[in-house]
Design a protein around this nucleic acid. Structure first.
Length: 610
DNA sequence: CTAGGGTTAG
């Protein structure tokens, strides 16, 4: 009887947890003739098979026990431990096995060991460890002719190093590149948001005569999706049909994803309906696509998915929670949360992040914080979501505290989280703190501010009236300010009556985006505030002639499981008094706090009632 | 008996 068969039959013998039992068991199996000396080499192979089997079932501690009991541990056994832990996402365990092997093992690591260890480094996101393994690979001369080592090394650098430099160096040194070498590089660039570069490399790969396979296709499609390039996406879709790869589900799933990310939902639907054998990823991709378009559709697709017998996983729930967040549908979100809890998925990191965001957007910042505080581990997104939530609720101080705490816990901030803390500072009037953060971002973290960040700093300075400083900042920008930056200055000018600078800002903003209606309105308001009613009217005519209309801001609230939608000044129907009652409350509070609406320069939009 | 590239989120 073969080892494979022994391991796959459950009726024969349960897996022994310890080596002592195992040896007894092995000696009693029909494969071992009694009387012959016990074959330790054969036992080691059997034991390694068992190790692999344990890891495949996620039984890492059983594997560990068996490994600790093994009298002879060869390279294969060690390597199986490393790859097994990696397979089970226990990267630090995998790494410590590798370290242990280098220190105490009888055999030195081979090429298999090196690529497994590199995968562990990738999982840990530790370039430092990866570089150590790279060193071992060089020392043991695994850098020439070991394509697996090269590819694993590239993959590690592409996903952990600061830039793509290291990965490129490895790539160029490979004498005989294979498809995996190319696709790893393409995936690396896509992952870092450089889809254009990724597609250029894909073209280079084709020119190099490398044969396409389903894997490389789906990676290239992902690159298209990442830059929203429908154009290239369609071309590759045609190539897929030509090569007969349509029957490959991962490929069609990636094409579906591409259409979703390009915003072609009708095309995505066509693609979806054309897939006969859908899997969970197919459904999840479509649900996520509709979620990004701020639609309620995911909820319907989900119920259809369940009725077809699919069980949702954490990906499904992440999209559903995001849908509830987009709709600010608290009750629905709570129901979905219940489903997550029932299935024991509430400890999933990404899902918890989505829940933080959902509760915050539904106005329930306390539940956001509850989720956040109960998380066993948090990543950058967790902190950012919590900070954005607090910022939106006006707790600027809390945001600053969280940011500092996050940095202290060893998480490296990125552009998005700086954006969150800067906008919180700006809304809370923490000008000096905000300026300190922007300096910290540039000098300590070497993050270059983008348009959005500049806009935020202009806002930070402009709100309390430091309008000239804000203008100075714009003049010193290393690139041309876009309409959002000028828009921020315009807002400040309007609020603090800097009419000359305001007109300049409005002109700049309108030159860049002539259909930004808000700017016409603000400019027109500036003229009106100066009493230049003629100019103001001229602006309004300009808007009218071009057919521009300021879209009415729509709000909605949920009262007793019913969603009420309204625009400012719009009275809801007579049967909605309870909603109006609730809406009256904050107005009452504001008036009690001494709020007097500023009306002297407001122009009313006659068309839509605002 | 050990190694490769495909769906989440701010």
């Amino acid at each position: 009887m073969s080892t494979k068969r022994l391991l796959s039959t459950n009726h024969f013998h349960p897996f022994p947890p310890m080596m002592k039992n195992y040896l007894q068991w092995a000696q009693n199996t029909p494969t071992h003739k009694s009387g012959t000396p016990f074959d330790t080499k054969g036992a080691s192979i059997l034991a390694t098979d068992l190790l692999k089997s344990y890891f495949e079932r996620g039984l890492t501690s059983e594997a560990r026990n068996l490994f600790d009991e093994m009298p002879e541990r060869d390279v294969v056994a060690w390597t199986t431990m490393i790859s097994g832990y990696t397979h089970c996402y226990e990267y630090t365990q995998a790494w410590s096995v590798f370290v242990d092997m280098v220190k105490n093992g009888n055999d030195p690591p081979n090429a298999f060991t090196i690529s497994s260890a590199l995968k562990a480094c990738k999982g840990m996101e530790r370039v430092f460890c990866g570089r150590l393994v790279h060193g071992v690979a060089i020392k043991r001369r695994f850098m020439k002719g070991f394509i697996y080592v090269d590819n694993a090394l590239m993959d590690m650098y592409a996903s952990c190093a600061v830039g793509m430099r290291d990965a490129c160096v490895v790539f160029h040194d490979i004498k005989e590149k294979n498809v995996v070498s190319w696709t790893t590089l393409i995936a690396g660039y896509t992952h870092r948001g450089n889809g254009n570069r990724a597609l250029r490399i894909f073209r280079e790969m084709l020119l190099d005569g490398v044969a396409l396979n389903p894997h490389s296709i789906s990676i290239a499609v992902r690159a298209c999706a990442s830059i929203g390039s429908q154009n290239f996406g369609r071309q590759i879709h045609t190539a897929v049909i030509k090569h007969g790869f349509e029957s490959d589900l991962p490929v069609t799933n990636s094409i579906l994803d591409m259409y979703c990310r390009c915003g072609c939902l009708s095309e995505a639907n066509k693609c979806f309906n054309g897939i006969t054998e859908k899997d969970l990823i197919t459904w999840n991709t479509l649900i996520a696509g509709y979620e990004r378009s701020d639609s309620i559709e995911p909820l319907f697709i989900f119920s259809q998915m369940e009725s077809e017998g699919f069980t949702p996983n954490c990906f499904t729930f992440t999209s559903l929670i995001a849908t509830c967040a987009n709709l600010a549908a608290l009750c629905c979100g709570q129901q979905v949360h219940g489903g997550i809890f029932r299935r024991g998925l509430d400890r999933n990191l990404e899902l918890a992040n989505a829940l933080i965001d959902m509760y915050a957007k539904c106005g329930n910042i306390f539940d956001s914080h509850k989720i956040f505080s109960e998380m066993s581990c948090r990543n950058l997104v967790s902190w950012t979501s919590m900070m954005i939530g607090y910022g939106a609720h006006g707790y600027g101080k809390k945001v600053v505290e969280l940011f500092d705490e996050m940095v202290r816990s060893g998480i490296r901030p990125d552009q998005v989280v700086f954006m969150a803390v800067l906008s919180a500072c700006s809304h809370a009037g923490l000008v000096d703190q905000g300026l300190r953060y922007i300096n910290c971002m540039i000098n300590d973290y070497h993050i270059k501010p983008n348009q959005e960040i500049y806009g935020c700093v202009v806002d930070l300075l402009g709100r309390p009236g430091r309008v000239e400083e804000a203008y100075h900042l714009i003049r010193s920008m290393p690139f041309m300010a876009d309409e959002s930056v000028w828009g921020a200055l315009l807002g400040a000018c309007k609020a603090h009556n800097f009419s000359k600078l305001g007109k300049l800002a409005a002109k700049k903003a309108l030159a860049l985006r002539p259909n930004m209606v808000e700017n016409y309105v603000m400019l027109s308001n500036i003229y009106a505030a100066e009493g230049k009613w003629g100019e103001a009217a001229r602006m309004r005519n300009l808007m009218k002639r071009a057919g521009y209309r300021k879209e009415a801001g729509r709000s909605w609230i949920e009262v007793r499981n019913q969603v009420y939608s309204f625009i400012a000044g719009n009275k809801m129907g007579s049967h909605k008094e309870s909603a109006c009652e609730v809406l009256e409350l904050p107005v009452q509070h504001m008036k009690e706090a001494g709020y007097v609406p500023e009306v002297h320069c407001l122009i009313h939009d006659h068309e839509d009632g605002t």
